[in-house]
Design a protein around this nucleic acid. Structure first.
Lengths: 219, 219
DNA sequence: GTCTATAAGTAGATAGAC
DNA sequence: GTCTATCTACTTATAGAC
């Protein structure tokens, strides 16, 4: 990357956009609101990013890239052992995302929210950004298959998405969870929450298959 | 409800808004786009709903209310038996939402998408709408506790949200799932997908608790 | 209840000074 | 690289005819 000039303004714009996108949604956030928050002017966005869409992609890319690199590094380490454990594979996938919460240099909650929100963004944007996850999906899909060889590929495919869902929801709905618990529960203890998620997901992945004969009238 | 005049226009507006909200997001959908899609005029929205925010709430309420009523009815039936089965409780929760996909009178996919998207909407709107889920959360929380009495309440609380996550993700990311599977997988078979989700969630809820001593250096 | 017309404000994007 | 000023189009909302 040609980061000779990290252009303080560029970073300030990304920070402001990230915060406002997570808070109010992308469509509801105007460029003017972003420049106002960043303490710059309207033209700076067009100078650095060209148009709003490019700014949006840059906001996501800045967070996704290091998280996915971390995931792959952890998976490499897990697979260096001869017999990879299911929990270890899941942990390598889940922890880098949940860790964003306590990353010291950034706001925290809004980053998680933004990551989780990704999946519910409009079509074109979503698929453009999800391309950055293709390698991750392949590597982790293969690792899960090796850890759970009995599971038919199509069923593993479904469960892989259920797994993503429980993680993404934790990212996006952290405030709902804290709100509903009336103070009893906090998102601060990342270690504990990662382990909670890992156990749940491992149990779900290992669950016996349904027989697919149960239908409406059984309920 | 004073549904003496179901006001065809009102319904057309709700249908159009629902479709566009799911497709492009709420913030990015203008009232003009909605009236254009509905074949009405701009003033009709203000006549029927007053302002955009009220329209948004009406769009959600129209879908949430019957789904949650269905959930409670199913739970009543499940609890009528002496010893409620965990899978039955989960199914009562999950099926009414997934069933929207094949509801004959409406578009389908965009309704699911909208329901799943709810959790990633901005603060005020989200909490206003999530109030409609309070009764559901209490009833199902209690039912899950009775089916899994060994699980400490705080851990059940977490796992209940992981459960919501895997369901909400299936609702919101249906197109991602179909896209990634390259045609091998379809969302049409609601019965099979409900059973897939129920097995996964049941496995997750029944999983052994983590010991919470595993930390960063273990990975 | 439904419409047109219009007010009053805000959107993204650009030109050009410094 | 950063700024002000401005263009054009679109936004929500309202007033008033029918």
């Amino acid at each position: 990357m040609s980061e000779s000039s990290t252009s303080n303004t560029r970073v300030k714009l990304l920070d402001a956009a990230e915060r406002l996108f997570a808070l109010n949604g992308i469509g509801s956030t105007s460029l003017r609101a972003i420049t106002s928050e960043a303490g710059t002017n309207l033209a700076s966005i067009h100078y650095h990013f060209g148009k709003k869409e490019a700014l949006v992609e840059a906001v996501f890319a800045r967070r996704i890239e290091p998280v996915n690199r971390d995931r792959l590094e952890r998976l490499d380490r897990v697979e260096a052992e001869s017999e990879p454990n299911l929990e270890d594979v899941i942990r390598a996938f889940v922890r880098p995302a949940l860790s964003l919460l306590r990353s010291p240099d950034h706001g925290g909650a809004h980053v998680m929210n933004l990551m989780g929100r990704l999946y519910s963004e409009p079509g074109d944007l979503k698929f453009a950004i999800l391309k950055q996850f293709e390698k991750i999906a392949l590597r982790f899909g293969a690792a899960l298959h090796r850890a759970l060889p009995i599971l038919p590929p199509d069923e593993l495919f479904w469960r892989f998405h259920f797994m993503i869902g429980s993680m993404a929801f934790t990212l996006v709905a952290g405030d709902v969870i804290e709100h509903r618990s009336e103070g009893r529960i906090s998102l601060d203890d990342v270690d504990a929450n990662v382990e909670r998620l890992v156990s749940f997901i491992a149990g779900g992945l290992r669950a016996p298959l349904p027989n697919f004969t149960t239908s409406e009238d059984t309920v």
